[in-house]
């Protein structure tokens, strides 16, 4: 089990919040409308089936994922139920299309949104902790929730059960709020490394 002190948990939350805040301002500037992004909750689960997301196993979700390597390694994912992803993209693009799947261009737009958020989260962690992280280009996938993590290309998670850090993210746009998730899928070793780095950083900063 992942054991984090309250302060460690809080530190990770704050790093993520900083990243998400930056992402929100980038997005807001791009779409020329206010975009607020908050992270109401962060949780750690050892099995995907324990997550809130897995409550609707057959729901189709749109996901943008980027793998990352560095002191800790894994895959970061922005996940929305497909309907929400439509709402999100269309309210960002300010168009109303009566189509119930994403067009190719909308899919690419969602990929960019995911890229901005995931980069910001990873960048914030990397920047504050002073450890460089390499990221891959984002990829898009559309699946049923239960198959979300199947045959993913996350390196380092092979053979070991991944541990998930799940962020519940909430977009607050002009018209509506759209809820999604950011998943960090790592193996136990990586998450322990992350905790170690946080501890070291806290120790250094606070003497």
């Amino acid at each position: 089990m992942i054991e984090l002190t309250e302060l460690e948990h809080d530190t990770i939350s704050e790093l993520i919040n900083i990243g998400v805040g930056r992402a929100a301002s980038s997005l807001s500037e791009m779409v020329e409308q206010p975009v607020e992004l908050t992270v109401p909750a962060i949780s750690f689960v050892e099995r995907f089936s324990d997550s809130e997301l897995a409550n609707a196993p057959t729901e189709v979700v749109s996901a943008v994922s980027q793998s990352f390597h560095g002191p800790f390694t894994g895959e970061a994912m922005l996940v929305f139920p497909e309907v929400r992803s439509l709402e999100l993209v269309r309210s960002l693009l300010k168009v109303d299309v009566p189509l119930d799947t994403l067009t190719d261009l909308e899919q690419e737009a969602l990929m960019e949104v995911g890229n901005i958020i995931l980069n910001a989260c990873l960048g914030s962690i990397s920047n504050v902790l002073g450890e460089p992280i390499n990221c891959s280009m984002p990829t898009f996938r559309k699946r049923e929730t239960r198959a979300l993590l199947d045959d993913d290309e996350t390196e380092g998670s092979e053979g070991t059960n991944p541990v998930l850090m799940i962020l519940h993210v909430q977009f607050m746009l002009r018209q509506n709020d759209i809820d999604g998730y950011v998943l960090f899928v790592m193996d136990l070793e990586s998450i322990q490394m992350l905790r170690e780095l946080v501890r070291r950083f806290l120790a250094n900063s606070l003497e």
Partner: peptide
């Protein structure tokens, strides 16, 4: 930071 990026035609 070595971050890659996608810049889509719809958003830009």
């Amino acid at each position: 930071f070595g971050m890659p990026a996608v810049i889509s035609p719809s958003l830009n």
